[in-house]
Design a protein around this nucleic acid. Structure first.
Length: 296
DNA sequence: CAAGTGCCTTTATC
DNA sequence: AGATAAAGGCACT
């Protein structure tokens, strides 16, 4: 077992970070969280100012849980108003993970128009069917399917995991990776807009999915995903930043046009600054907690 | 408990 | 450009 001593001036809350709906394949068993990242299963628990883990090296753990982010600085920068201050106060220690980009991309293609329990189920099914089985600590894990294994699968197999019409998007995206048309890793070193554009060219990837992938796996902390919750949050707490007709139109409709999406997302980036993604995650989870939707 | 609504949206079509 | 419909099927009420 190894451990990282958590600096007293750098808050971290493992439970919040893994429960807030950014990653879908973590399971808590007792005080240990079990997960598998980049084909390697490991477990983590948080003690008093210490993070303990087994089967992972400290550098990886530090990176994956965003412990290198200067959270006090970030929280100071995004605390632009009373509501945000409240969210920050309630959720201090929540950090943005650095997920595996491929898993993150497929996860969010699958996540469209689904709720979180259903997303978890789909990704579990997909991994069980097309990933590789490993065991650790008496627990069974499945690696996330590679682009090759997803490209080779049949649409029928993907659909049987519960993907529905998303199966063809996942399939086509996997094929573009396999044939070299698309390389997600290289997006890490590209600027936000350029990386975003390349993601948007993929089937099943709209602005919301692209922003999630940029934020949760590609180190673009300025990305500001806008889902139905964020749409409600912005029109509820930040209405004064838009004209009335826009707010009325947007809150009335269930889905957003591309232009409306960009307007809301751009507001987030401009208003909260270069760590807008953190603001988004705090607002999102805070609202869901208040609605009683994020307890499990 | 059943049936209706909603879901961390995208795409196709007009 | 903007509106509208359709798309698995599960989860929640």
């Amino acid at each position: 077992m190894e451990k990282i001593v958590l600096a007293s001036d750098q808050p971290f809350d493992l439970d919040l970070t893994l429960c807030c709906g950014q990653a879908f394949r973590w399971e808590k068993n007792g005080e240990w969280w079990y997960g598998i990242v980049a084909d390697k299963p490991f477990k983590v628990r948080q003690g008093d100012s210490v993070l303990e883990f087994e089967n992972a090296n400290p550098e990886f753990v530090e990176k994956y849980f965003g412990l290198k982010d200067d959270l006090p600085l970030i929280l100071r920068q995004i605390s632009k108003d009373k509501h945000m201050e409240e969210a920050v106060k309630a959720l201090k220690g929540l950090r943005i993970l650095r997920q595996d980009p491929w898993e993150c991309l497929v996860s969010y293609i699958c996540a469209t128009y689904k709720n979180i329990p259903a997303i978890k189920r789909m990704l579990f099914n997909l991994s069980k069917k097309l990933g590789e089985k490993t065991t650790f600590n008496g627990h069974v894990f499945y690696t996330f399917p590679t682009p090759q294994s997803l490209a080779k699968a049949s649409l029928q197999e993907l659909a049987s995991c519960g993907l529905g019409y998303r199966a063809k998007y996942v399939m086509e995206t996997a094929k573009r990776v396999v044939n070299g048309e698309f390389d997600i890793e290289e997006l890490k070193v590209e600027p936000f807009e350029k990386a975003r554009k390349k993601l948007l060219a993929l089937p099943g990837v709209g602005p919301k999915v692209a922003d999630c992938v940029l934020l949760f796996s590609l180190e673009k902390l300025e990305a500001f995903p806008v889902d139905v919750w964020m749409k409600r949050i912005i029109t509820k707490y930040y209405a004064s930043h838009f004209d009335e007709t826009f707010v009325r139109r947007v809150s009335f409709k269930k889905s957003l046009t591309k232009a409306e999406y960009e307007k809301l997302s751009l507001f987030g980036r401009n208003y909260f600054g270069r760590f807008a993604g953190y603001a988004q995650e705090y607002l999102f989870h805070f609202e869901r907690l208040k609605a009683g939707k994020a307890l499990g």
